[in-house]
Design a protein around this nucleic acid. Structure first.
Length: 399
RNA sequence: GGAGGGGUGGGUGAGUGGUUAAUACCACCAGACUGUAAAUCUGGCGCCCGGAAGGGCUACGUAGGUUCGAAUCCUACCCCCUCCA
C-alpha cells in the first residue's frame, strides 16, 4: 500500500485512531484483522451519519479484513447513555430479530456481507451468571465511569443516571472479549466505551483492541449530530428524490464535510473544492448538487441521481409541476358535494389534519393547477386532472 | 428510614382559582426574498364541526375531590432530584 492510499485509509473520514502507530504496524503485517462494530436493534434506520464508519469498514474489507457485526440484543434493553435515555422497553425476541433484519438489510448496502461475521450478544450473555456480572463489574470504579462526559454532566446537573446505564460500557467491552476483536469502530461519542473494551482486554490477557473513531456527521440542521430522533437525518433507504432534496436543503457550510466523509470524491479534487470554497471562487450550489448526486448514486444509482436532479430543478428551482406525481381519486356525487378543499387535502395526505389544511389554505400555500386558492372552496369545484399542491413539494393529481 | 424540592405542549421553561389552548425562547410549517441553503421579514403552530362568524372537545405526572369555575386548592398514588442516615 503506498503512502497516499494509506493516508486515505487512516485520515479521511477518521477522527482518531488509538493507537495509530500500532494500528499501522498491525496493518502492515498483512494479517487479516477482526473489525468489531455493534448496533442496538432498537432503532433500525441507518442514515448518512452511520455511513461514515460503515464506509470505512468497507474500505478495510476490500483489503482483506473481516467485519464482526454484533447485534446488541442485551445492550438494546439498557440504551446507550446519550444523556436523555430512559429505561427502554424490553424487546421481545421476535422484535429483536425483526429489527436486526431491517438493520442488516441496510448495513449490507455498504458493508460486504461475504466478509462479515454476525454475532448476537445473547450468545455469551445468555449463559452469564450473577457471579460473572460481579466479576466483570469489580474491575472498574464509579470514578472511572464518571469520567465519561455524559455521566459527569448529568451527575452535576442532578439528572438521573440508572445503574444499568453504567453497565452499558461494560457489556460492550465484554463483547470485545467474546469476539476477540483487533479493532473496534464507532463514532467519537463511542470513545469511552471502546476504550473500556480495550482496558478489559488487557486485564483479561487479551491483546488490546485499537480504537477507530469516526467524526459524528452534523445533521441537516447543520448544528446537532445527525440522528433520527432529532429528525435531521438523511436515511440511506429513502427515495432518491428525498435524499437529493434533503441534501440540497443542507446549510452550505456542511457540504465539504459531507463530501469528505461520505463520498469517494478523489482527494485532490476535494482539495480543489476546499480552495475554491475558501476563496469564494466556486459555485456553492453546483458543489451541493455534486454532493446530492454522489449520495443518490451511492444509495441508489447514477440514473436515479440524474432523475432526482431534474426533479429538483423543476419543482424547487423553477417551481414547476413534476411529471410523475401520485394520483388521488376523487370520490363522486353526493359524497363529493359534502366535502371541501380542506377535506381533500387531508384525504390525499397533503395535510395531517383539517386544521392544518385550513391553515395552509389561509397562508396561500395551496395551489390548484398553479393558481393560488385562498378560500376553502367546495370540493365539487375541483376537476379531475387538476394538480393539487400544498407548499413546495407536496403534489397530487386528481383523478 | 427522615427532611426538603420538583413533574406544564417536540425541547427548554413561565404561569399559584376566572380575560389561560396556556407567556417566552428553540425546533417545526407556510409565505416573501434568493443561488439550493443560510440570514432577514411576515404569519402560523392541539383536535373536531362550520363557507365564515362562531361553537364544541381534549390537554398541564396518575386517579379522585372542593368550586359556578382548577395547570393553579385538597387527598391518595406514581416518578425524579438534593441533603441526612
Amino acid at each position: 500500500m503506498d503512502e497516499k492510499d494509506r493516508n486515505r485509509l487512516i485520515k479521511r473520514g477518521v477522527a482518531e485512531i488509538i493507537v495509530e502507530s500500532e494500528f499501522v504496524e498491525l496493518l502492515d503485517t498483512g494479517k487479516p484483522l477482526r473489525l468489531k462494530i455493534g448496533f442496538d436493534p432498537s432503532a433500525p434506520d441507518i442514515h448518512v451519519g452511520h455511513a461514515v464508519p460503515l464506509r470505512k469498514l468497507r474500505q478495510l474489507q476490500d483489503l482483506g479484513h473481516k467485519v464482526v457485526l454484533i447485534v446488541g440484543d442485551w445492550t438494546a434493553q439498557i440504551g446507550d447513555p446519550s444523556g436523555k435515555s430512559q429505561t427502554r422497553p424490553m424487546l421481545t425476541q421476535a422484535e429483536v430479530m425483526a429489527n436486526a433484519e431491517t438493520y442488516m438489510a441496510q448495513f449490507f448496502k455498504i458493508v460486504d456481507r461475504e466478509k462479515t461475521e454476525t454475532r448476537f450478544q445473547s450468545d455469551w450473555f445468555g449463559p452469564f451468571t450473577l457471579a460473572d456480572v460481579i466479576k466483570l463489574t469489580s474491575r472498574f470504579t464509579v470514578a472511572q465511569f464518571l469520567a465519561r462526559e455524559d455521566f459527569s454532566k448529568r451527575y452535576k446537573a442532578n439528572q438521573p443516571i440508572a445503574i444499568t446505564e453504567l453497565l452499558y460500557p461494560l457489556l460492550q467491552a465484554y463483547d470485545s472479549i467474546a469476539v476477540k476483536s483487533d479493532v473496534e469502530f464507532g463514532g467519537t461519542d463511542q470513545k469511552f466505551n471502546i476504550l473500556v473494551g480495550r482496558d478489559l482486554q488487557g486485564m483479561m490477557g487479551h491483546r488490546p483492541q485499537h480504537c477507530f473513531l469516526m467524526p459524528l456527521l452534523p445533521g441537516t440542521d447543520g448544528v446537532q449530530k445527525m440522528s433520527k430522533s432529532l429528525n435531521n437525518y438523511i436515511g440511506i433507504t429513502e427515495p432518491a428524490n428525498d435524499i437529493y432534496g434533503k441534501t440540497m436543503a443542507l446549510p452550505d457550510s456542511m457540504v465539504l464535510a459531507y463530501l469528505e466523509n461520505v463520498t469517494d470524491v478523489p482527494d485532490d479534487e476535494l482539495d480543489e473544492m476546499k480552495r475554491a470554497t475558501e476563496s469564494q471562487t466556486g459555485d456553492p450550489m453546483e458543489l451541493k448538487k455534486r454532493l446530492a448526486r454522489e449520495l443518490v448514486t451511492q444509495f441508489h444509482d447514477a440514473d436515479a441521481a440524474k432523475t432526482a436532479e431534474q426533479h429538483f430543478e423543476r419543482t424547487v428551482q423553477r417551481r414547476e409541476t413534476p411529471e410523475d406525481i401520485p394520483a388521488f381519486e376523487l370520490s363522486t356525487g353526493a359524497e363529493l358535494n359534502s366535502k371541501r378543499l380542506s377535506d381533500i387535502l387531508v384525504n390525499a395526505g397533503l395535510a395531517s389534519s383539517s386544521a392544518e389544511a385550513k391553515r395552509l389554505i389561509d397562508q396561500g400555500a395551496v395551489r390548484v393547477n398553479d393558481e393560488p386558492v385562498n378560500a376553502n372552496v367546495a370540493a365539487s369545484t375541483l376537476e379531475s386532472g387538476a394538480v393539487l399542491r400544498a407548499g413546495r413539494r407536496r403534489f397530487v393529481r386528481l383523478v
